[in-house]
């Protein structure tokens, strides 16, 4: 049980790092990472909002009608953003100054909305909080890293301390948008290289098939084919059916309907437990298996 919780937490930091693996929240990532301190400030503000909104939405998940869930999520998120914004304005006016419009824009940050939609609206409170915390830490770490790289190359400092500025003229382009895109691209390439070395799928294009969250997504389009409409209804049922295993690895849920149905028909309880075990011990094989199932069923 403990390791499962831990894996939810670490999931967002490395395996599903929101910026580098899910490629979400690109706008604030590129815009505010001109200095390492900005990255930390933005990251912490977003993390607070993410944790609070995940918790609130998870508590409300049985009361929010499916059809108006997005406006409901946004309202909850906006409430927390207002709180955070006032706090930052009051206690860290310098960070408020440097983040500017991007602080209130956390409302429409797609990481927060995506976690509400994909995780918090289907899971109990504690896992949702852990998920928000993990994603937030991943977001903060990536932003800080990007900020540090850009600040070092573009201004010769890190966290405002002079490092190379005195003997090498900094390349100002790294503080400008092109430098942001460049550093972002290099980091995504590096994380892809690491993923490939570990034999995990890489982000090659931004379609559903390569999305690490495709399993949890209602409307994932796999192999260029849209899932039938009834899938959406089914997807909303799924969490209730699988209450036992709903905390398990998200990748598991991804088996497409046919495979899913078979499992449910044959021996729901056994298979579920079995899957749970494998997910704890050998995650990777499960990923491969489910991938195969999806491929097979679509043929």
């Amino acid at each position: 049980m403990k390791s499962k919780k831990l894996s939810i937490l670490t999931n967002g930091i490395i395996k599903e790092n929101p910026v580098l693996r899910l490629v979400l929240g690109t706008c604030p990532t590129l815009a505010v990472t001109t200095a390492a301190a900005n990255g930390i400030g933005m990251g912490i503000a977003a993390t607070i909002v993410l944790v609070c909104s995940n918790a609130a939405i998870s508590l409300l998940r049985n009361f929010i009608p499916d059809k108006v869930r997005i406006p409901a999520f946004i309202t909850v998120i906006a409430g927390f953003v207002s709180v955070v914004q006032m706090l930052v304005k009051a206690f860290a006016p310098a960070i408020d100054e440097s983040l500017g419009i991007f602080l209130p824009l956390i409302v429409v940050n797609c990481i927060i909305l995506a976690r509400a939609e994909m995780f918090a609206s289907k899971n109990p409170v504690l896992p949702s909080i852990l998920d928000g915390l993990g994603m937030g830490i991943g977001f903060t770490a990536t932003l800080t890293l990007m900020g540090a790289i850009r600040e070092l190359l573009g201004a010769g400092t890190i966290f405002g301390m002079t490092v190379t500025a005195e003997f090498i003229d900094p390349m100002i382009i790294f503080l400008l948008p092109p430098g942001g895109f460049f550093v972002f691209g290099i980091l995504v390439a590096a994380s892809n290289a690491l993923a490939r070395r570990q034999g995990k799928p890489v982000v090659e294009h931004l379609g559903c098939a390569n999305c690490p969250s495709r399993s949890a997504c209602h409307n994932a389009v796999l192999d260029g084919e849209e899932k039938p409409v009834e899938c959406a209804a089914k997807a909303t049922e799924e969490p209730k059916q699988e209450k036992v295993e709903e905390i398990k690895e998200t990748t598991q849920e991804e088996a497409s309907e046919e495979a899913q149905e078979k499992i449910v028909e044959e021996a729901p309880q056994e298979v579920a437990e079995e899957n749970e075990e494998t997910s704890e011990t050998v995650e990777e094989t499960v990923v491969e298996e489910t991938d195969e199932k999806v491929g097979g069923s679509n043929e």
């Binding site: 003229d169 900094p170 390349m171 100002i172 382009i173 790294f174 400008l176 092109p178």
Partner: peptide, 10 residues
């Protein structure tokens, strides 16, 4: 252009 943007002075 990269140089011009980066090292405008020099």
């Amino acid at each position: 252009i990269v140089l011009l943007v980066s090292f405008a002075g020099q």
